[in-house]
Amino acid sequence: MTEERKVLLEVENLKKYFAVKTGGFKKNYVQAVESANFKIYKGETLGLVGESGCGKTTLGRTVIRLHEPTSGKIIYDGKPIYDSEKHIAENMLPYRRKMQIIFQDPSASLDPRMTVGEIIGEAIDIHKLCPNKKDRTDRIRELLSEVGLNTEHANRFPHEFSGGQQQRVGIARALAVNPEFIVCDEPISALDVSIQSQVVNMLEDLQTEKGLTYLFIAHDISVVRHISDRIGVMYLGCMVELADSYELCSNPIHPYTKTLLSAVPLPDPVKSRARDRIILEGDIPSPINPPSGCRFHTRCPYATERCKQEMPVLKEYAPKHFAACHLLEQ
């Protein structure tokens, strides 16, 4: 990464455990995010992929402190907003103006009793962005037209919209405070295929127009590759590989990334039937009781004795190409 690019968000050793109740006095933890280390540069899109239960959504929410981290460090724009060692936990209200989120399920994330205008206006009111009423209405209208909705839609309720339109409302709500950084948590997976590309294009346009920075979370690696500059691959709470998106997809070095890529169905009958697929055995282990050492060793075809005991750390193996695997050291 070139030195002059500004780091907007930096995450160090971020950890998030959820306590779960079990019988007796023993307390168990879902180790949702084990140790996340990454930087997001201003104006870029960092994609996060992984299967369900790998902690990508938890990571996205912990980064903007919708979940309080268990330990670690989050630095936004040079200032620490969370540091477990120095006991820093900033008041998030001023940061909410800069960091926003778009949720996965648009119908569940919009209050059914509020009109679209009220939903978008609420964010404006909380941050006192438009003191006078006319400005506020104008701003809501402006936001609606920015996301491709009609201005008269402000008086309607969420149930009157289709899934794609609801997601546009969700995006308008996130944009209402003029944020710099948006976490897009599976923003298109609940939408129909023909609508998905409309929303992807809109997110790209908004980024160019407003210079936004995205953390784009999705399970569909083809979409993530399309929209992201860099991609991080997660497995069971750990980031296993991080690289430029083209590099990652054409030259993956971690065994899990390789299998993930070979499992993606290709819309091309000859190519998809001719290629060699790596089919993994078994399922993802439980994050309550994750395997020792490298968390992938139970399914990895190349696992050695060392993988069972020692957890690998993310290291740079090629320029800007990071991976966490013992096998690469040899």
Partner: peptide, 25 residues
Amino acid sequence: KGLLASQPRIDEEEPERLIPIEGTP
């Protein structure tokens, strides 16, 4: 044609802009 063109592909060379099917069902 629209469906095939609107989806990003993992095997494309350089990501191009997607061509969506406009409108809703």
